[in-house]
Structure formats: C-alpha cells, structure tokens
Nucleic acid binder design. Structure first.
Length: 622
RNA sequence: GCCCGGGUGGCGCAAUUGGCAGCGCAACCGAUUUGUAAUCGGUAGGUUAGGGGUUCGAGUCCCCUCCCGGGCUCCA
C-alpha cells in the first residue's frame, strides 16, 4: 500500500500492474467502499476482490492462532492469494489445516468488511506494534489512510473487498508455506508466506488442481528419469548435467539443426576455450557485476583464471584477430559453447536451471544502427521459424528496458540506452510481433528483447535474449575501417535462439510430455519379433532402416509380444514394427504408431519411406 | 544464499510407543514360443544420503554436513 489513498496515483491508472504491486490489495475507485454489486463487476475484478478478502480472513485466523503475529501484506495473485507474516515459530501443515477450517467459519459468519478513514497519526498509533505496517505507513503521503475491519480483525488496507465474508467462496484451499523477504529484498527480514488457491467455483478449483497434477506428469525431471535422458548425480555435483545416451541424441539433433540453420544465415562458427584469464572479464565489466555468480578463481604461477561464464569477450577476440572493413560487416560469430555460472544452490532446478550449460550464442558485429535493425529482424524471424518447427506456442516477447535511476545495476549513459531501446521497439513493431515492456529487466550494458516461456508448472522463464550493445565495443576499443577510410566503432548484437541445450530440452520434454517428434526421438522404432524364429527377419528389417540412418532396435527379449508393446509404449517409442510369419513372408511389418493405432502389415520399403519423410520434414506428429 | 519440508535396493513405496529392514516394478536365471499395453517360477540386490551423539537397542530421537523439493532472492 505504498500509494496515496483516494487521490490519483500512477498505479491507479494502470490496472494491469496493480496486482503485482499492490501491497495490501485494493482499488482506488472509492475512499470508503459502499456496497458493491459483485455481479456487475468483471470476473477478473470480482475474483481479485474475493481473493484479497480471503487474505484478510487468513490474517484474522492467523492472529487468533498466534496473537503475536506481525502482519505483512496480503494481495490477490493469479490463482488465489497469499499473506506474509512474521511469526514466533515456524508454521506446520497442521497449522494450515487449522487456519483453513477457521477461515471457513469466518466465511460462514457473513461478517461485513467495513472501511474507515483515519489520519496518518491515528494510524501510526494504532499500528505501533506492527513494524511492517508502520513501514508501509511511512511511505504514504500525509493525510488520511484507510483501514478495513471485519469481525474482530482490522487491517491497514486501501480497499478492494467483497461486501462481507460470505461473498468469499468456499472453493479455496491453503496450498503451501514459503519463505519470502519483506518487500522482496534479500536485505530485509524473511517472513513466512501462506499461499492459498481460490476460485469462484468448486469446478474451477478442481480444474486448477488437475492442472497442477498435469504439470507434475509433464515435469522434465520425472520424464527425464523414466526415459533415461539425463541424470544429476551427487558425485559430479549439483547443476552439472550428465546426458545419458538417449538425451545426448536429442541434444545432438538439436545442435546439428541449429548450426545448419545458422550456417545458412551466414554465421561463422568458432570454438573458444572454457577457461580464460580473470582480467578478460574485468575488462568487459562482467567481473564487477557477476563475480559472485562465477566459479572461484583458479590461481597458478601468479596467474588467475576463471571458467567462462559467457563468451562475449572471446568472440570479441575473434573479431579483433583481423582488421575489418565496412564491406565485411555484419560479421556473425557463433558458438555452441559451455558456460559456467555459480547459481545459488537454491536456484538450481533439474535441467532448466543448472551451473554448466551449453549456450546457443552468437555475436553480430554491425557497422551502424541500420544494420543492427536488419540483423535483429533476421534473428526474430529465425526464432519464429525455429519455435514453429518445434511446435512451441506458449511464449511471448518482452522488451526489457534499463532503469535510468539505477546506476548500480546499469551502465550510466542515457543517450545510449534511449537509442538501443528505441531501435528494438521499432524492429519488434516492424516484424509485427506482439510484445510487452518491462523496466529494470535489461542487461547491465544494454536493453534486450527477451523471449519469455511459460513452463508446464506455470512459471515464467527467459528462454533467450537479443541485445543491442554499444558498451562492450567501447570497453574493448573495437573498430572497423569505414567507407571514408576512417576508424569507426561497431555495434554488437548478442543473440540466442535455442537457449541452452539444457533449458531447451527441459522445455521440450514438458511440451511433448516425452513424446518427441520422430526426428528428435532417441529411439525412432523398435522391431518386435513375435517368436524366436522371427528374430533373424527382425534384424534384417532393422538393418534396412538403419541403412537410412534411422535409430532402430530389435526387442529379442524372451517376452510375450504384448509385454514388449507395453514396455515400448511406456518408453514413448514413435513406431513399433511387429513381425511374425505373415510379415516375414511378405517382406513387410505390422506398423503400430505411438498413439496406439495398428496400421497392419505394410511393405518395409513403404515404412522406410514414411519414416524418412517424417524425419526429414521434422513433422511434429506422425 | 535464505525460510519450510524431505532423503529407505536402479525406480515407486512400506516398516506400531525406539525392538529381526519389507513389497511391487526393473535386473539376472530357467520354463514357455507367444499376433497389438504386463506368461509362470526362481535368484540376487541395503553401512536406511554421510558423520557424530543419546540408548541394552536407532530407518525412527538429538546435532553437524551433503543432496533433493516448494517458495524468496538472483539470472551476463
């Protein structure tokens, strides 16, 4: 509740942003809420009021459970609400059950929510034992503030409630207990956050829980283990991915594909070392900003080395290896190289957040902003192509801007920022891609376009970025010889498309639920002999497919055909070729598609043609 | 890194107030020779994450470390 009350604030006119920023919730439409006709509100607004009101009810229950509870904030969120508390002891699951039951009673009690306006001085007196409320109060302008009372519970709050607790649906559930820093800053005390899910109907709540269940089914960590794609083993270290043969096959196919696409687009692939002198990153500025997130220094014979956290400086060295004319630009340097970043232990997650990762990265050295615009446009088109082939849909573009007031985080050079931001905005508009803008999300040296993906679990992740960089060329004194014969400074475009192979494969596992399209599937087909006497023929069929570089195995285990089919179905193998007497006679195989469909006996030559076409066109479905 | 919750054969799980570490699947061996989602029988597999403590006795209680999960923070 950092806003002025009752007045016109910046946030009040920005409904899309209020949800995140709102401290104790609220709409600015009225100072003292009168009776609201909930049915006339939009569903979104009605839900927000229900959720925020539920947070009040949670706080009411908490104060009853622990009279010493200190109140933080309790806003609505996309799936419900949360409330932050500082408590004398850690919450338990039993507490959660008790709180939920107590909330249901309060809802059944139909207690009206009543707003009252009091002076700031009165509020300061009233909330003198609540340090977090006092902190909120300290940011409010002089004048009156509001607080909200229902039953015997009062909260400092700017509003946004339903009329009485009875308007809150019983279709809610307290989900989890989490730690959260006050005001989202590590420097502040950590509070205990209770998350609740709340929807208007029991059906909606059930659908949400089903959605969570679905996310668990798709979880790449689960599927990665079941399909033996990758492993994270203690002995090798957290965040250090071991790609098993099946996973490494997917990785290899993706790598070959993106490198071929880049070669078609005029990129030059290089290979640079995994280790470089610390001094290189001091010069680039990365050391200053990211040393805590780098592997520790290796020191020997008075020299200091680090594992490279990124390869911009290395590619700059490639550029500097020769003098360049304007005629050569743009020069596109690309590399699928390993990056090493000491992510905090709590940030590691499966393959989507790791410490050693292979990054699909490139640096495009441009002569001027016209060239930059053209190159960024080409990158965006390449992205659209790549994500289209992969069948990805749940992503969006974000223009990430700097923050002119934050000299700690960003290079201080306002004209440079304005130029870059304007340029990226223009290109996005020209290509016709919808995008949002976000202040304070840029790289330290320049603005960027981020591609944001929603994971199966519903979390927002940055897949790749495109950045315009005037800063590093300056740090390294890069130049090219212009048409006028004089020296000029190039501009660098940093870009990724596939992201890290780790994150992309994690994403694809969840997207496909392990059912990889044929071209990526580690094992593309299994030949299943019905009885021992068919094994030799099965091997012949497999050899024919392998001759066209299809990845095929023969299941000659001493098992019944049904058991083999079941096993390979669970392994999500795209095709099964069942061979018995009839098929051996006809040089055919009975083709079973992953979905379960049995196409019956088909000549091997036809099967071969079908699979090769499906693979070579990178078809998403058989 | 911080808060909370976890860690039992390869995987999924069980084990009463502290009292003989078990089950299913997978693996291996044998029998069976099978027509579109699990044939039958047998065998082997464990310092209960690691270390320390309490106890006659610890998977179980206490302490430390490591790792995993949910959040927070961060993400060049």
């Amino acid at each position: 509740m950092a806003e002025k009350l009752g007045g016109t604030t910046e946030r009040a006119s920005r409904p899309s942003g209020w949800r995140r920023d709102c401290l104790s919730g609220g709409f600015m439409s009225e100072l003292i809420e009168s009776h609201a006709d909930l049915a006339s509100l939009s569903k979104e607004e009605r839900l927000a009021r229900m959720r925020h009101s539920a947070a009040h009810v949670l706080a009411e229950a908490m104060v009853e459970l622990m009279p010493g509870a200190e109140l933080g904030i309790g806003p609505p969120i996309d799936t419900g609400f949360y409330y932050d508390f500082r408590l004398p002891r850690p919450l338990t699951n039993e507490d959660l059950a008790w709180l939920e039951e107590r909330m249901r009673q309060s809802i059944a009690g139909h207690h009206p929510f009543q707003m009252a306006s009091i002076t700031k001085a009165e509020a300061a007196e009233h909330w003198k034992d609540q340090p977090f409320k006092l902190d909120l109060l300290s940011e409010l302008d002089e004048g009156n503030v509001t607080q909200c009372t229902h039953a015997h519970f009062t909260d400092l709050c700017r509003g946004g409630h339903v009329n009485d607790t009875g308007d809150i649906p019983q279709s809610f559930k307290l989900m989890s207990i989490a730690g959260a820093y006050w005001r989202g800053s590590e420097k502040n005390p950590q509070l205990q956050r209770v998350y609740g899910a709340l929807f208007e109907t029991a059906e909606d709540l059930a659908a949400y829980e089903e959605h969570l269940e679905e996310a668990r089914r798709r979880d790449h960590r689960r599927i990665g283990r079941e399909l033996e794609l990758f492993e994270l083993v203690d002995e090798i270290g957290p965040g250090h991915v071991v790609w098993l043969p099946a996973g490494a096959t997917i990785r290899r196919e993706l790598s070959r594909w993106i490198e071929d696409l880049e070669i078609e687009q005029g990129y030059l692939h290089v290979h640079t070392p995994n280790v470089a002198k610390r001094e290189l990153y001091v010069r680039s500025g990365h050391w200053d900003h990211y040393q805590d997130a780098m592997y520790p220094i290796m020191e020997r014979d008075g020299e200091e080395y680090v594992l490279r956290p990124m390869n911009c400086p290395s590619h700059i060295m490639v550029y500097e290896a020769a003098q360049h004319s304007y005629r050569e630009l743009p020069i596109r340097i690309a590399e699928l190289g390993d990056m090493h970043r000491w992510e905090k232990s709590g940030e590691l997650t499966g393959m989507s957040r790791v410490r050693i990762m292979t990054l699909n990265d490139a640096h495009i050295f441009c002569a001027d902003t016209d060239q930059v615009a053209l190159e960024v446009e080409n990158v965006l088109r390449l992205m659209e192509h790549v994500y289209g082939v992969l069948g990805l849909k749940n992503y969006s573009y974000r223009l990430s801007l700097g923050d002119p007031d934050d000299h700690e985080k960003y290079v201080d050079n306002p004209p440079m920022w304005a130029k870059g931001e304007d340029l990226l905005r223009r290109v996005l508009t020209r290509v016709g891609l919808p995008f949002t803008e976000a202040k304070g999300e840029a790289a330290f040296y320049g603005p960027k376009i981020d591609v944001q993906f929603e994971t199966a679990a519903g979390k927002d992740e940055t897949l790749v970025t495109v950045q315009v960089d005037f800063h590093l060329p300056n740090q390294f004194g890069l130049e090219y010889i212009g048409e006028d014969g004089a020296r000029h400074q190039p501009i660098i475009v940093h870009r990724g498309v596939i992201s890290t192979l780790e994150r992309m494969v994690a994403l694809l596992i969840e997207e496909y639920e392990g059912n990889f399209p044929l071209w990526l599937a580690p094992t593309q087909a299994v030949v299943i002999p019905i009885a021992d006497r068919h094994v030799a023929y099965a091997e012949e069929v497999a050899a024919e497919l392998r001759a066209r570089r299809l990845r095929v195995t023969v299941d000659s285990r001493n098992e019944r055909m049904q058991a083999k089919i079941r096993d390979h179905q669970l392994k999500k193998i795209p095709y099964m070729l069942v061979v018995g007497d009839r098929e051996a006679e006809a040089n055919a195989a009975a083709l079973r598609v992953r979905g379960g469909e049995n196409l019956g006996a088909i000549p091997v030559a036809d099967i071969l043609a079908r699979l090769v076409t499906e693979r070579d066109t990178r078809a998403l479905v058989p």
